[in-house]
Design a protein around this nucleic acid. Structure first.
Lengths: 266, 266
DNA sequence: AAGTGGTCTAGACCACTAT
DNA sequence: TAGTGGTCTAGACCACTTT
């Protein structure tokens, strides 16, 4: 016996229900996580080896691996080749905040709507030209919108869009560009018309905390000084050319991102 | 022929290199993603069926499934049983911001250090008692710290810790609780002493944008009014009892979270 | 040499969707 | 009924770590 599997107790009497709707790999992953939740498997300790799990739960090696891969992807264990699989300790830096949370916040889609404040053609100044990778002075579409939720202004959105008659960036896309997406959530790929021809290939989004300026405070109906979240976004088409640059500003006292780290049930 | 696989062209001449270090499933996932990046596979369009991919790339069905699962996990495609697998359009709300980004920001670990401003025993007021689920008036450990980066104060951290002689929450844990974690990144499970006995089971973290108050501004050496990020954290032990409640406040002009959505190379 | 994670296959079977 | 994604197995082989 070369490698002594130290304190690797074989845990719990729970077993796989072959008649369940839940796949065996998912059941096993949950059993293992439950063992961690209950403290039978503490941070730093080693999981039973794959061979042991195969025996104990009567599933194939592939199924065990898949279960463990899930836990690895979830960030609760690390698998080290030749050594074993270990429970990871809780880490602050593992926290991730999802922009999609805002959709829940804007829950009642009835009460949310978009007010177009202004849309006009403007010449790109140095900053806009740089962001959109066009020449200074070229024409762009400038839009200002106010997003309402429950009869309160929630976000002030400003956006510059490429204006190029040779590029198909017209009306339809204007709507899609960013706003619909924010609310439409996972944005089902299936459209009723058949084809969802998104022109957008990818985008960069950044988040900052800022102070509202006078205009922003007025539109959002709050008093200065007021902290705010600012989400800047830059979207590209399939030629990797920028098509849209803009930013959302929302009053901080209405926004809060939360997340969990470590071993949570279910 | 029942279900016509519409415009499903079999793509690209790229193929799997069996001698590569990169596993076949990863190579296939990358080939497929590359097809999306290049625009051969647009949002809404259907991927070749698994059977087709098996034939085209000469790998087993399991390998194909694993490749596709990766793309599903990455959120770039959706797989619908009985229908097919489709490319997802870009979505703003898919953006996720990782707290771990701060570690890169605090890159030079040489230049970062922690200054303990104060530590004392205080009686829990109503708010602290509620957060830590103890009785008002019970003793807690209150700590104030300043986190420096490049000879600049970056974060001001305040924290209340359970003070209970019957619970092992002593000195060693004080250090670990949150700070080490913020800097130590993935926080390797392997400690030199052998056992990493983290007492923390899980935690909740929330992010807000706020204004610095007078004391915070003074300590962080900035002028009011100044926007700031506030990260509140509440950690629990393996009995699901709170052990630590506190918050980091950092000047907003030094912090920026960025992320990408959609189809990115590599 | 023994034990560990990691990859891969060939084929079976199931559940769902479209026609 | 044919095509689709989804699960599962038994066994082979490899690479790494420990003793």
């Amino acid at each position: 016996m070369a490698h002594r599997p130290k304190n690797t107790v074989l845990l719990e009497t729970a077993s796989i229900d072959r008649d369940s709707f839940e796949p065996a790999y998912a059941q096993l992953a949950n059993i293992l996580r439950q063992n961690m939740v209950e403290g039978l498997l503490r941070p730093g300790s080693q999981l039973p080896s794959e061979a042991q799990l195969v025996e104990r739960y009567g599933v194939s090696a592939m199924t065990v691996r898949r279960a463990i891969n899930i836990l690895v992807d979830q960030g609760v264990v690390t698998a080290e080749q030749g050594r074993g699989t270990f429970v990871k300790p809780v880490t602050l830096s593992a926290a991730t905040f999802q922009l999609g949370q805002l959709e829940n916040l804007f829950g009642n889609r009835e009460g949310t709507n978009v007010q177009l404040l202004e849309t006009r053609i403007v010449a790109a100044d140095e900053r806009v030209a740089r962001k959109l990778a066009i020449h200074e002075g070229k024409r762009t579409i400038y839009m200002r919108r106010l997003l309402w939720n429950d009869n309160e202004p929630a976000f002030y959105h400003r956006e510059y869009l490429i204006y190029d008659p040779t590029r198909p960036i017209v009306e339809a896309e204007l709507e899609v560009t960013a706003l619909q997406q924010l609310f439409s959530g996972t944005s089902e790929a299936r459209s009723e018309t058949g084809i969802t021809s998104s022109l957008l290939k990818h985008g960069e989004i950044s988040m900052e905390a800022t102070l509202l300026d006078e205009e922003e405070a007025r539109l959002l109906k709050v008093l200065q000084p007021m902290a705010a979240f600012c989400f800047e976004h830059l979207f590209y088409d399939f030629d990797d050319k920028p098509v849209s640059w803009g930013w959302f500003i929302g009053r901080a006292d209405r926004l809060r991102f939360t997340t969990q780290v470590g071993l949570i049930n279910a």
